[in-house]
Each structure stands twice: as structure tokens, then as C-alpha cells.
Write a protein that binds this DNA or RNA. Sequence first.
DNA 1: CGTACCGTTGAGGTGAGTCAAAGTAAGTGG
DNA 2: CCACTTACTTTGACTCACCTCAACGGTACG
Lengths: 243, 243
Amino acid sequence: MVSSLGCAKIGCKMYDYVATSGMSESGINMLELSRITRNYQRGDLIFKQASPSQELYCLRSGQVLLSHTDAFGHKTAFRVAGPREIIGFRSFFGEDDHAATAEALTNCTICLHTRPTINKLIDTCPGFARVFMRTLARDRGPADALVLRGQHVPVRTRLVYLLLIMKDRQGVKETKGNLSFELPVLRRDIAALLGARAESVTRAISELKKDGVVTIKNRTVTIPSLKRLYAETQRGAEAKAAS
Amino acid sequence: MVSSLGCAKIGCKMYDYVATSGMSESGINMLELSRITRNYQRGDLIFKQASPSQELYCLRSGQVLLSHTDAFGHKTAFRVAGPREIIGFRSFFGEDDHAATAEALTNCTICLHTRPTINKLIDTCPGFARVFMRTLARDRGPADALVLRGQHVPVRTRLVYLLLIMKDRQGVKETKGNLSFELPVLRRDIAALLGARAESVTRAISELKKDGVVTIKNRTVTIPSLKRLYAETQRGAEAKAAS
DNA sequence: CGTACCGTTGAGGTGAGTCAAAGTAAGTGG
DNA sequence: CCACTTACTTTGACTCACCTCAACGGTACG
């Protein structure tokens, strides 16, 4: 079993929420008492699309891929969650079955919080509800990657956007002027995030490499010039102002 | 000026929320006192992308198109709101600038609710917060139309989905076995909803007509067989089960 | 009767999907 | 340590749905 350190000690998001919502010790104790900690192996399903949503999941370590499979059997990924992020909240508060599948990209440790506890927290502290409303409102859910999936933007550009997002989420190393970081996902997952096929991702990668914008070797991304990467973003964007 | 009937009398959504959240008269009075009613003409902007979000808008009559314009100047519509629907709540609770533009498709009457009132309602009644959290969680926002914009689904099929959604939202008439209803939007808006171009929509429409699935003349949609229309939905969906 | 907007139709180009096959990396068991 | 399996990645050839551009028809309104 995992260490029994409290949420406070490990910098858990739920703890932050309870704390910033101006709640006393009692709220934190409530969380601690009902918290369930689980470990997942790489590849494990944390929850599955269309299964009932019972808990709120709070990542302590590891990475999780959230994806949605439509009626046509097409898988679209819309979020990569990391430590200190909460997942499953949309279905939880929507009181709906899970709209997405969560899969462990790496080994993960996750805290589960049950409905009675969360409801009690909401009832006793309006601030807590307010913080969560903010989270819900800001999370675009499957739309998070709206840019990433707009058909009018070429795969190459969408990939660049994704890299810029990933860069800020993953640990970035700097070696002799080059930034580099590790991708937490496979080609096929990148494809799912971009709404493209793995082959197209490969082609976009080799194009970007050819043009010296970024190099992606296996899981390692190397950026010679961040400026150059940002410039890529503007490709074909002579921004015809909207009506 | 518009009639001063209370929200209760006109079946306003906000009133429902306050009522079902088990709140007393006081909550409803609070709403009534601070409510501002406005009229908009067809084509008017109700709020604009990137402008600060100050109020919650509750439609009393008319139809509103919600759309988002990306950095490339591409407009994507993601929702058509009608009477008794609330708009602008995502930015309101996200405490962000508006992520979308709301435009009146027809003449509209809309109630505005200000932040202090809403906050007070949340603070005094956890049930009210809970109801709104449910709304926020269930609203996919710009992703609502995820199916409608999946590139892997042909425009023709996406259009059929849209028609099925519209059918349930608009008043449907039945004349000698044929269902028919009015589209509240222009071709260009349909295109924005589908993530396609107006020309492609036209082509899809004429194809569907040729195959006798639906007829769309100007704004009037005629459906000879609902069964046939649903069947259209399955086009090319030999559902290769996802991995 | 012109202006303006919407809708339709046609011709042409292309980005990305599909299919198929070869190359590479990683784990397993003898 | 090496064959063998399995999974992931890359490359190439082909096809097609949709975009783009451009012209034309229809309807409303001054």
C-alpha cells in the first residue's frame, strides 16, 4: 500500500480547493477519512466510457489519457492529465455515466473521493462549490482541444500547438541552447488528440524535422528555437477578420 | 418596454432552478428585483467574444446563435439557444472573458442577472449551486457539436445529425405523413455548426434530396420518413470496435 | 430597376485518410 | 545471449471528400 500521507502533505488539488474555499479543519478531515488511494499500472483503465460515475479522481502521480469513442468507433483523445489534476468531475457533477475513458499512460497513484463526502462539502461550504463551478466552467472538456481538431488547420500546425501545450506541462530540460522534453504519449495517442491518424502525425513530424523546427525522436522532443516554433503557429494565418 | 411579468409566470429557467433547489420565496424575490429585461433585434450582438462577462442571460423568447472565432478567423458555431435556455454561464462562472459571441437569430427578449445576485443565491442555497454545477457539467460547450464536427464523419451525415437535433428543438408540424419544421439559421450558420463551408452544405442538401431522405427548401425542412433519416445516421458506420 | 445578400452550381486542387509493407524497438523464453 | 513474438513507427502509392475560387440564379427591399 501507498504511504498514508494526508492530502495536505502531498499538495493535492482537492486539499487546495477545500483550503481556498475558506473551510476549517473539519472539511479536510472529512476528505482524509473517506479518501481511498489506488495504484494503477501503465495501460490500466481508471474508468470507462458509459460506466456509472461514482467518484471524483485526484491524481497524485503519473499521467492519464482521457478519450472519447464515438458511435463510429473513432477514438478522440481530449486531455492528458498529470499530478495534482482532478479527473472524472464532469460526469460526476453531471450525474451522468462517464462520457470518457481514462487510461493510465504511466503507473499512477490516484485518490478517490466518494459522492457523499463531496456533497457534504458542497452543502457546508458555498466557497467549495464556487471553486468547483469555476473549474467546470473553465474546463472545455472534449472541446479543450478545439484548435487542435479544427479541420481547417493543417495537422502540422495542430501538432505544433500540442507540443507547445505539452512543453508547459512536462518537465523541460535545457542543454546547449536546446529545449527538450519527453512526450507522455504514443503516436497513436497524439493522433487521437489531434483528430488525425498516426501516419499523418508521422508525416507532420518528419516535415517539421526537415524544416528544422523541432526534432522528435521516439518520445523526446527537441526544440532548437522556441521563437521558430511559435512562428509555426501562424502558418497560413493571414487572419481574415471574421464578419 | 416588455411586460413586467415575473419569471415564475413566464416559465423562466432561472425560476425553475431557484424553485427546484428548495429555496424559499426570498430567493425568487431576489431574482425578480435585480432582473433586467432587454430586447434585441435580429442580427444584434448579445455579447461578444473576448468582452468581459458580467451577467447571466436567460432567454425568454427568440433564438440565439453561439459561435467562436479562432485565431485563424474561422467561425465555428456550437449552439443554437432557444426560449427558457440560459447562455453565457460558462464564462460567467469561469470568471473569464466571453469565449463566444452570441448573436440574435430572431428578435429576442432576454433577462439579465447580475453577479451579486447569483453569488448571493449560491451562498444562501447549496442546492442552487448543485443545480448549476449539473448544468455546467452537462454542457459540453463548444464540444456539444463534437459529432457534428468530427472530420471522419462526412458532411452529409453531420448535417443529418444536426437536423435530428433541430427537429426536437423547433416546432414540428405534420402534414399528410410528412414531418416538417423551420430551420432558424442560414446556410452559412449551418456550415459553421458543422465545421464545413456553405457550399458543402448546399451539396449535402441536394444529395439528401436526390436520395429522398429530406427536402430542404429555403428554411423549411420536410421529412418523408423519420426512420429513413435515422438510417442515414449509420452511413459508413460498420463500427470497427475501438481498441 | 438596381443593389445586396443568399443560395446554388461547376471546375480544379489538395490535405489527409486508407491500405499495405517494411523498419525498429522492446519483452519473452529457451 | 540469441531467436522469436509483439507492438510501435515509418514510408510509399492511391483515392477522395472537402475547400477554394468564380460565376450565376433567386428573392427582398429601397
